[in-house]
Design a protein around this nucleic acid. Sequence first.
DNA 1: GCAAAAGTGTTGATCTTACACCCATGA
DNA 2: TCATGGGTGTAAGATCAACACTTTTGC
Lengths: 229, 229
Amino acid sequence: MSVTSASPDVRIAVSTAIFSVRTTDDGDQLMIPLVRRTREPFLGQWALPGGWLGGSEGLEDAAGRTLAETTALAPSWLEQLYTFGDIDRSPDARVVSVVYWALLRSDLVEAQRATAGAPENVEWFPVEALPELAFDHQHIIDYAVWRLRNKAGYSRIAAALLPDEFTLAELRGVYETVLGKRLDPSNFRRLLEGSEALVPTEAFRTGPHRPARLFQYNADIDLAELGPI
Amino acid sequence: MSVTSASPDVRIAVSTAIFSVRTTDDGDQLMIPLVRRTREPFLGQWALPGGWLGGSEGLEDAAGRTLAETTALAPSWLEQLYTFGDIDRSPDARVVSVVYWALLRSDLVEAQRATAGAPENVEWFPVEALPELAFDHQHIIDYAVWRLRNKAGYSRIAAALLPDEFTLAELRGVYETVLGKRLDPSNFRRLLEGSEALVPTEAFRTGPHRPARLFQYNADIDLAELGPI
DNA sequence: GCAAAAGTGTTGATCTTACACCCATGA
DNA sequence: TCATGGGTGTAAGATCAACACTTTTGC
């Protein structure tokens, strides 16, 4: 009935797929930071940031630590994605990877990059143009992107990619980048204004056009319904 | 940057929340099998079926093994739920639990119970009336129930709880049990008939009323959209 | 015939989508 | 005054919920 004993030869890693929307020459793009591996296996190839689970840290803490090591930033959203445990994921050892996905405010990413410079061995890539990846990380990223797009479709999660205050057009731009399709401005406005998710401020963003009202997230409303967890 | 070394003191368990709809004195109920613990900690208390992850089995294989040990049946649906890894989940050791949830065809459960009898130390409970549970298993079950209800709302997953052939009323009954609310028969019929998910057979179920056509799942359609995974 | 469940039709409410159109600003 | 994006209005279409009604069986 019960299993005989524990298996000391299985190790636990925690990795995180970190998303941010960044402005490039090709317009805004959904991007993800990768780390160049400094040891075998897959030496020199790109991989998701991650590390071994410490004995005295929770899974989410480990993901947060990983994220801080990679970007020196705290995520505006962090959620477990999936746990990958096929026996042949890693050529040497048996590794079970608990993978998280995170959203980072794009303004903070830019600011941090400007002041501290890019961390060693870390580089941001558009999710549409990734290099060859170590392990099963391409598969993992595909799944994370699918989850992000899916969740963006039925929640206000994409607001976590923007600063505290933003215009509706900026928020719509984030959704368009994440979902990869154009949205009708007027319908987008109605949808958001009806949802209680945003609160209007008295500030406006000026530019070569009519000023646009700035909004904030409604802190009373969760960005995503996660259920009882 | 990178973490120093692996942590050999974290063990990996795989548990499964198994659902089936069973007919009781109180009508149909959503039920779940639990196992009485035969060792410390929580000796004598009820817990989710599970065991340690074997060094040469994948996560899903381990969940399937668990399930077979508990019910001697293969699930009609098996999906990863979540991985729980708080440092104080277990009083003694550090345990990370990869939890799956499963659906079992109710007819097979009844048949198996009738022929082989109930396995040792296993008992089915209605999810609405669970005993006191070991570890954080109450929390886990709450989450699994939420996921099942949620998924039932936007997919055809509940069909996995029924035999190959079933009437629309039987399928509706399953949905009503899972979701905990009544559904309009005519609207339910239209919804399902329009969805391509079911194929009508030429067989009918007779009774003290007009015979009802039997349906099968459409094998070409997935019971649930899971994305690229 | 009657009860009970199968199955059909209809209607109004609501949500989605497309798109026309006015408004406010910088240049 | 013109270009640009901000913001409002509206109507067609799709979807959904409620419920009246007809059909087919066993008794």
